[in-house]
């Protein structure tokens, strides 16, 4: 009972604050008699949200956005592991990869968009490339940090047990680096989510319905104020759910099972 309370209380506190912010929003509308085109009423935003989910494609658009992020992250994860492995095996490769990381990691996705359009066009492949770029480098940096902080004793024990090469990598190094992989994924998710929305707002529809970024863009050009704020709310809620739901849970599980402390 007390355990359940401990888990649920932060959510209740959060919701209470959200209620406060929503009331503040409505108070502002009431107190300033500002145009509903600038500050739509909360009920109209909720109405637009319902319309977008029930009559519109918002659910499919969200699914498409997630699908692209998941696929791009999977590819980036494999690439990052290959890069870390290569760095571990060859000092020459390590210095080359390190330089590449130093150059490309700080490069925002939106800055490479014009080049990506020329190279890969404007469809799903282009968005995919943009997300792989924004996800790969934080993943690589974190996994490499995990590898570097690996206690030497783990490796020695592994070798004593007869593990070497790929098996040493998959049996000892990967599990030990897992907490770092998760924190890398966390950064990667934040970057992917931002990159996806910017890319979609520039590129237009992918695969027929477009993703959440395209949804926001069409709300803007058709001047649907409530719809625009509904889209922003969805982006916020998805961000919170993934961050505080998925990653916090993943973090706790993995820290308990494989963490160093």
């Amino acid at each position: 009972m007390s355990h359940r309370g401990a888990v649920h209380r932060p959510i209740l506190v959060r919701l209470a604050w959200v209620a406060v912010f929503v009331s503040l929003w409505e108070f502002l509308r009431w107190a300033t008699s500002i145009s509903p085109l600038l500050l739509p009423a909360v009920p109209s935003i909720l109405g637009a949200l319902a319309t977008a989910f029930i009559e519109g494609d918002l659910l499919r658009q969200l699914a498409l956005s997630f699908g692209v992020i998941a696929a791009a992250t999977a590819v980036a994860l494999v690439l990052a592991l290959v890069l870390v492995l290569a760095s571990a095996l060859s000092p020459l490769a390590a210095s080359g990869i390190d330089t590449l990381n130093a150059l490309l990691h700080p490069l925002p996705a939106i800055a490479v968009l014009p080049v990506v359009i020329v190279w890969f066009g404007t469809g799903t492949p282009a968005v995919f490339v943009v997300i792989v770029h924004s996800v790969l480098w934080p993943l690589f940096t974190n996994i490499r940090a995990g590898y570097r902080s690996l206690p030497r004793t783990y490796l020695l024990v592994g070798r004593n047990l007869g593990l070497r090469g790929i098996r040493l990598f998959t049996r000892v190094i990967v599990p030990a680096a897992l907490p770092h992989v998760v924190s890398g994924l966390r950064v990667a998710w934040a970057r992917a989510w931002r990159a996806l929305i910017s890319a979609e707002m520039v590129f237009g529809a992918m695969a027929g319905v477009g993703g959440i970024g395209w949804f926001l863009f069409t709300q803007r050009v058709f001047m649907n104020g409530p719809g625009l704020f509904a889209g922003i709310a969805v982006v916020m809620v998805v961000g919170v759910v993934v961050e505080e739901g998925l990653f916090s849970v993943l973090d706790r599980r993995i820290a308990v099972r494989w963490g160093e402390t």
Partner: peptide, 8 residues
């Protein structure tokens, strides 16, 4: 055609 538009 609305699903195949691209803004350029």
């Amino acid at each position: 055609f609305d699903g195949r538009l691209v803004t350029m």
